[in-house]
């Protein structure tokens, strides 16, 4: 299970990757949105967990770029959005991609982690 974690908050990035690794996943960490796009286009991941408010670009921009490589059906399954800005607009946009979205802080951490590492 190879997971790409795009998250620019260092404590969340480190803690989440450790927790997922504990559940047996291989985690690649990235905090830059642009670098993440390169990684997605050049490598293959089973799951991509993506924060929305990044320092350089917006998480939805990454999803758009991923369309070069993946069908919208694949994007819907692969991508999981995590965000602290869960406004209605954000929820609507996420729904348009059909991805799962979890608002930070997660209400039920173990359950969310299970979903992260669950095989497709």
């Amino acid at each position: 299970m190879k997971i790409l974690l795009i998250e620019d908050d260092p404590t969340i990035q480190r803690a989440l990757s450790k927790l997922m690794e504990k559940r047996g996943a291989t985690v690649v960490k990235e905090s830059s949105g642009k670098a993440a796009i390169e990684l997605i286009l050049q490598n293959n991941y089973d799951k991509i967990i993506c924060d929305l408010m990044l320092q350089d670009i917006h998480g939805f921009d990454i999803l758009e770029e991923a369309k070069q490589k993946y069908s919208s059906g694949q994007i819907k399954k692969m991508f999981i959005i995590i965000t602290a800005y869960s406004s209605t607009q954000v929820l609507d946009k996420a729904a348009s991609y059909g991805c799962q979205l979890f608002a930070k802080p997660f209400d039920d951490l173990p359950k969310v982690l299970d979903i992260f590492v669950k095989k497709l």
Binding site: D9, P10, T11, I12, R14, A15, L16, K18, L19, M53, A84, Y85, K104, P105, F106, L109
Partner: peptide
């Protein structure tokens, strides 16, 4: 709230871990 949610969540996750 949103600006604080991220670091607070990080704090919580790390300390739990």
């Amino acid at each position: 709230r949103h600006e604080l949610s991220n670091p607070l969540f990080g704090l919580k996750l790390s300390s739990d871990l």
